[in-house]
Design a protein around this nucleic acid. Structure first.
Length: 310
RNA sequence: CGCGGGGUAGAGCAGUUCGGUAGCUCGUCGGGCUCAUAACCCGGAGGUCGAGGGUUCAAGUCCCUCCCCCGCAA
């Protein structure tokens, strides 16, 4: 069976590998164009592209596949297309090309958490369970018929980065199971229940600005959900932005949101929130590297009593 | 050459402007105090100051080259 894989970030790599290992003929890989990234603006290939090149699979990087990728895709004569965090919207014209159709690996329990950042949002919303879904892609945004689903527990304190790494291989397994099921004709397509559906938007940098009036629980979930990108941060002292990498809930003896309850190398850093308080365990100052809050405070005594901006 | 910050003891930092004995907080080791302690007191060990070259009587500090780390831009 001729398969074309469409994916971009790390999440898609296990699925691509699984397709190859399962013996499917992966005749082409579509991924986002290389972009200048990192210091020095070096061009960096997407993880999926790197993986495809290792297997010697032809790589296509249209800016907009529905505009300048249609003919390439058609020429590959795919029986099946597989998407996993590709990052581009497919048009009906594209969806009509593969004989069997297009299967998408989505990292939530659809119809909940449609959108491009389901893992992050599930954590931010305080969920304790999520999962991966395989579905037939249709013209809507994550609205196609569900094929298979698998629940995954969100571990206490787990970050989006950690959970993504854990989910990717599970998604790959489910993908293979799904394709085999389709070939055998034993999979039932289930329409999504619109009444149960929810959509969450792309992540934006501003979402990482901590509002200390939120509850400690919400803030901690946000820190977990927005790691590693865009990250969460707050501002204190001389307009200095502090990025929070790891935090946990703590007791608040009745102080106002944003008040610094303690900030020294012995007790660590605890800041009052709308409900409860947040203990900052790992942080990062401008130009600095990520470190334990206590390590940071050892060399950076804090004289102010509250964070800025409230 | 996209812009900017940084590399000094095991950890986190100051010192670099204007060259002149390597400092601070903590950890660690030893001793003391204490019913006791993550508390307190006394003492010790631990550093090719990212690498190489240059200037100088003298370089962490000034000049040149290189390496590495971090942030911005998704």
């Amino acid at each position: 069976m001729r398969v074309v894989f469409l994916g971009t970030p790390e999440f898609g790599v296990p699925s691509l590998k699984a397709l190859v290992k399962a013996g499917y003929e992966v005749v082409g890989v579509f991924t986002q164009p290389d972009k200048p990234k990192g210091r020095g603006n070096k061009m960096l290939p997407s993880p999926v592209k790197s993986c495809a090149l290792e297997y010697g699979i032809p790589v296509y990087q249209p800016v907009k596949i529905r505009v300048d990728g249609v003919e390439d895709l058609r020429a590959l004569r795919p029986d099946l297309c597989v998407t996993a965090a590709f990052g581009q919207i497919l048009s009906q014209e594209i969806l009509d090309i593969p004989k069997i159709g297009t299967v998408n690996v989505h990292s939530s329990l659809l119809p909940k958490y449609r959108g491009s950042a389901p893992i992050n949002w599930a954590i931010m919303e305080g969920e304790t369970v999520t999962g991966v879904t395989t579905m037939m892609t249709d013209k809507g945004l994550d609205t196609g018929d569900i094929l298979l689903q698998k629940e995954i527990e969100i571990l206490p304190g787990e970050t989006a980065e950690e959970l993504t790494a854990r989910m990717a291989p599970i998604g790959a397994e489910l993908l293979i199971e799904t394709i085999k099921g389709l070939e055998a004709g034993i999979i039932q397509r289930v329409k999504q229940d619109e009444a149960q559906s929810s959509y969450f938007p792309m992540l934006k940098k501003e979402m990482g600005e901590i509002d200390w009036r939120m509850s400690a629980h919400q803030i901690v979930c946000r820190v977990r959900g927005l790691t590693p990108w865009p990250g969460t941060s707050f501002v204190w002292g001389d307009n200095e932005g502090i990025k929070v990498w790891k935090a946990e809930e703590a007791e608040n003896p009745g102080k106002a949101p944003g008040e610094i309850l303690c900030a020294d190398a012995k007790q660590g850093l605890v800041i009052a929130a709308g409900e409860g308080a947040v203990r900052v365990l790992e942080l990062q100052a401008p130009g600095g590297k990520r470190m334990n809050a206590k390590d940071y405070l050892r060399g950076h005594p804090v004289s102010y009593t509250r964070v800025n901006g409230i």
